[in-house]
Design a protein around this nucleic acid. Structure first.
Lengths: 166, 166
DNA sequence: CAGTATCCCAAGCGATACTG
DNA sequence: CAGTATCGCTTGGGATACTG
């Protein structure tokens, strides 16, 4: 089915996916975030673990700080000299579902036959963590469940009959 | 806290996030996927709507096909000549949570004051769709809930005390 | 309409060297 | 240890032109 031109009205710039992609779609960004979620906090540790050029890492961290995803802080361990660390902000933690959804996809479709390299569990009870879609009325959304996209308050586009995502 | 060197054992190559990032982290990829989810299926429509160079789009679609995310099919509308279309495979639909999680982040943190540009609803009941984290025993995972990462069957790294993601 | 081929050019990665 | 500055050099995007 040929989509009507209204789609043209949906500028990439006012799309939440596009805006998020602008941030996390940069090279290295997702891996930097992965390491931050995993508790790596120091510049040199990130640089070494990722084997990323230091100037690139510097730019990426700056972008994360500017986006409010990461906070740079000075701290001092007792008896040691001052150091700096990069720590996710609450906004940063809101990216966790993105990473976990990516991990779920990779585990399912891109993994060696022996199985997933990493298991993530709920620290409280040890249960495996899943990413689930649901609607506000509590219905589970299965992979093939139909979704509809409609213009929201900040929209610059008109409605179409198309589905799935926006 | 200084992470111990075991982290070095976690090659990026055997990380599900890294592998998924290799696919969807390429420039344009996320926007191509967004349009595919939204029902855009024809080469020229994608090229025009995204304002992407045609050769780049060609490469991206090829990568998606090779990854098994998209299937290229010939079809013919009655009375029309044959056309081709790109359609998400079931594996492709498994990327929907990634896109929706990105959208949720963008809606919350990167949106203009007037609100989100697009609303996604459960087609059955009209309820707004949310991305939720939960553990296998049904506990909700809030943004700040602690998670633990441990080596899985396909791991090439040793355990650490670190948390959150793998 | 649906691509592929070719070219040019800039962005930006990586390496290295340098400062607090 | 934690970065910034400089500098090639390559990758790869964009425009254009060309085929089924």
């Amino acid at each position: 089915m040929r989509l009507p031109t209204p789609w043209r009205e949906l500028e990439s710039g006012v799309c939440s996916i596009a805006r998020t992609a602008e941030l996390i779609g940069q090279p290295w960004m997702l891996l930097v975030l992965r390491d931050l979620f995993n508790g790596v906090r120091r510049f040199d540790d990130l640089a070494e673990h990722l084997s990323i050029a230091r100037n690139v890492l510097s730019r990426r961290l700056a972008a994360l700080v500017e986006a409010g995803v990461v906070q740079r802080t000075d701290y001092r361990e007792p008896g040691q000299r001052a150091r700096q660390e990069y720590r996710l902000t609450p906004a940063g933690w809101d990216l966790r579902p993105v990473l976990l959804a990516m991990m779920a996809y990779g585990d399912r479709h891109l993994t060696d036959p022996d199985g997933p390299p990493t298991l993530v569990d709920h620290a409280g009870c040890g249960g495996a963590v899943r990413v689930a879609l649901e609607c506000e009325y509590g219905h589970r959304i299965e992979p093939d469940t139909r979704l509809t996209g409609t213009p929201g308050p900040g929209a610059r586009w008109r409605s179409t009959s198309s589905t799935a995502t926006g």
